[in-house]
Design a protein around this nucleic acid. Structure first.
Length: 267
DNA sequence: CGAATTTGACCTGCGC
DNA sequence: GCGCAGGTCAAATTCG
């Protein structure tokens, strides 16, 4: 799943951003440079706040401790990161779970985990479960899952490290974003759209007949927060709108579906 | 019967 | 040095 981090490279910055790695005036002292960087950071933080003001879902994402784009870094953190060691790949995921679900601590997310311990911690009456990636013995990733003390219907999963293998631990075709989207949409729509990102096929059908509707797939979707879900949908919609090949496939699929629904004797 | 989970014991780091 | 809390180990137990 990882490889999602470090989305901005020093050389690939957008125009107008801080020229951290570009040529600087020779006469500029380190102190001046630091002051200028701090000022820039303040401006950027202000701009980010303004941008996020009417986008609470993005704000939530931007403030969550993900290892991806460092958009959430406040000025002082950004400044500190110049000399600090690289941050460990730790990220926290919150997911809603049924309080009655006895096994809810075993959040499924597309990877296969082996539980190796459980502990009751001081600040939370609910036990914390410890998992290791069971797919590859050499995979260093660990996961901690614990119910939130404030909201027992919420599960908090903390991931440490990066997988050194692919995500195909539990099933081969249910973990891609398109299928998760399908899972999310199927709950509110009478039919589902299944997009196979590998074979690039589109299947229209009733929600209860959708492919890949295994328990694992549903569970995998559980770890996607509503905020992330919305961003994911927006991204996918934008992507697909501009994809002529997709639009062609969609048109064909809709046409085929319509043909099925129209009684044959009309033609 | 093998694999996965449970759970008490043990280890380690940290604050006092 | 001591105690506490979090994290890990490994034997026992459960499950498919």
């Amino acid at each position: 799943m990882d490889g999602d981090g470090e989305c901005s490279s020093p050389t690939g910055r957008a125009p107008g951003l801080l020229p951290l790695f570009g040529p600087s005036p020779a006469a500029e002292s380190l102190e001046d440079k630091l002051r200028r960087l701090s000022e820039e950071n303040r401006k950027l933080s202000g701009a980010l706040d303004a941008i996020l003001a009417d986008r609470p879902h993005l704000r939530a994402l931007a403030t969550s401790p993900t290892p991806s784009c460092h958009v959430h870094a406040p000025a002082e953190v950004a400044a500190a990161s110049v000399t600090a060691e690289p941050r460990p790949k730790v990220r926290t995921v919150r997911a809603r779970a049924e309080p009655s679900d006895a096994d809810a601590n075993h959040l499924k997310d597309g990877y296969q985990w082996r539980k190796y311990g459980q502990k009751v911690t001081r600040d939370n009456p609910y036990p914390r479960a410890y998992f290791r990636c069971a797919y590859a013995p050499s995979c260093p990733v660990k996961k901690k899952v614990q119910r939130s003390a404030e909201d027992k219907s919420m599960l908090v999963a903390t991931y440490e490290g990066e997988h050194n293998h692919e995500q195909r631990a539990q099933s081969d075709d249910v973990s891609d974003a398109s299928t998760i989207l399908q899972q999310q949409q199927a709950g509110s729509l009478p039919c589902s759209i299944s997009i196979n990102s590998l074979g690039r096929t589109i299947i229209l059908g009733p929600a209860d007949q959708r492919p890949g509707s295994s328990a694992e797939a549903v569970a995998a979707a559980e770890v996607i927060t509503p905020e992330f879900r919305k961003v994911l949908v927006d991204e996918l919609v934008n992507l697909l709108k501009n994809d002529a090949e997709f639009m062609e496939s969609l048109t064909s699929a809709v046409a085929a579906r319509v043909m099925e629904r129209i009684p044959g004797q009309i033609f």
